[in-house]
Structures are given as C-alpha cells and as structure tokens.
Amino acid sequence: MSRQVEIRELYRQRPRSRFLRWSSAALAVLAIASWFSGELGTDDLFSARRLANLERFVGELVPYPLQGEAFDAGVAFRWARDLMAEKGWAAAGKTLALSVAAIVLAAFGALVLAPAAARTFASPEPYLPGPRPPGPLRRTSWKAVVWGGRALLILFRSMPEYVLAFLLLAMLGPTAWPVVLALAIHNSGILGKLTAEIVENLDPKPMAALRGLGARRPQIVVFGLYPLVFPRFLLFFFYRWETCVREATVLGMLGVVSLGYWIVDARARNHYDEMFALILVGAAIVVLGDLVSILTRELVRRFG
C-alpha cells in the first residue's frame, strides 16, 4: 500500500458526523437570518441622540463628589467606604447567603430525585436478577418511574430562575423564599440530571453485593449510591454554586435585598455612580466565588 493510499484511508476514517455538520450549518443560517430580520435595529444604536446619552452617562459613572472635580483618591475612598457601609456589605452577604441556601436545597432535591431517574437503579430488579423475571406490569411501572423522574428534572431545568422567582414572589410574598426556591428548583433539575448520569455509570458490583445481603432500596441508596456518587457530586455542586452566586446577584432585582435590589434602586434614582460601583461589587463576589469553587474542586479531585 503506497503512502498516498494510506493517507487517503486515514482521511476517510477521521471522526466526523453529518448530524453535527447539519446542526452547525442550521445554527449559522439562523444566526445570519437573525441579523437580517430587521428586529435588531443595528444602525439605531449609534444615532446622535444615543451617543449624546452615552456621553452624559459615562460622565455620571464617576462618584458623585468627584463629578466635575479633580480626582482625589481620598474622596473616592471615603465615598466607596460609605456606600459599602450603608448597603454594600450587607447586600453582598445576603447575595452569598441566597446562593448557599439555594444550592444546599438544590443538592437535597437532586439527591432525592436522581435515583428515580437512573435506569440502573429504578428497575424492577436493581443490580441483581430476582428469583423470577419481573412481570410486564412491574416492568412498565418502573419505566414510568424513570420517565416521570426525568420529565420532572427536565421541567425544572427548562424554567429560567428569573421567571420562577417572579411567579413564586406573587404567591409567597416578599421574603427571601421565592428567590431561594427558584434557584433551588432550577439547579436541582440540573444537578439531578448530572447525578442520575453518574449513578448510571457507576460500577454495579457494590450495589449488587448490598442487594445480595438483603438490603432494600433505601438502604442501597444511602449505603451504596450516595457514598460512591459523593466526590463527583461535589464537583458538580461547586460548579453550580458558581452560577448560583451570579444569579443571586441578579434575582435581587425582584425585591429581595441582595445586590440586584440596590442596583435597580440606584438606577431608578438615576444614581449611576452608585449603580456602577455596586455592579463592580457583584463582579467581585462572582470572581471570589469562582476562586473558592475552583480551589475546592481541585481539592476534591486530588483527595476525593
């Protein structure tokens, strides 16, 4: 076989997929069509009126005591310190607390729902064959459990947190619950799906051993699945916590006193300097959360 033929053979064997190509092409066509749809008003953004608006806005981003003055680091520092003392620190703490409460609840939800959505566990005879093959009724009912569990998880994660919080707020009134629950529901959908995938990929032998010793389903879950799932679950837990921090900042806009609340409040009062500073505080919290999450995930990877 000549070199040419060999190369052609390799070329033919390269990994490729018609599905991926068509999908990418479809997305590209959709993107181009969206720009030509006439909905976006691309030329309008740089009209003279908007640019004048922008110039005024940029001027107002400077802390109020410094507007039209020479820059003075002392004045700027005192302004920032007062802003933080008045609302910044408390709001930052609440934002963090929202994300922590939400992710802990989401973890509970995910750990309860995941076994039901895992095909290996939610079957008539999990991990070991029973004395008799299961009848058609038992097989279909366990299939129904899996599909029900999956449908619930998909429904949970397809709802944006903001919409959920908006709807819950009307029912539960202005406590922190609507935001916590909205974040928890959305993230238990995501964590639950990921955990169910971990459960399905587990080595079945430990669970088979437990079942062989006479363990019932709840015991298999608590003493078999949870300990085995734990390290990888923690990775996903912290990865989702990162996004919870981001979302918690924003969900404050609905009225819970997190950073988002003070940001829209400052905007409503046209205090753009304050709005900008608080957005920066939000960014700092997100960066901090990312760092903590990266660090813990590395620890889990190393020792878990």
């Binding site: 909905e39 976006l40 008003g41 908007r50 979302e247 924003v250 957005i279 939000g282 960014a283 990312d290």
Partner: peptide
Amino acid sequence: SLMRSVHELLWAVLFLAAFGLSNF
C-alpha cells in the same frame, strides 16, 4: 473573567441606562 463576572441582565441594565431601550 471580567466579561463573565457581570451577569447578562446587569449588562442589560447598564446598557439601558447608557443607550435607552435598543434591541441591538
């Protein structure tokens, strides 16, 4: 990391203040 750390809704609020309502 700076682009990522500000949520899209916060960017939207910033741009609303800067440009007014503009789909772009």
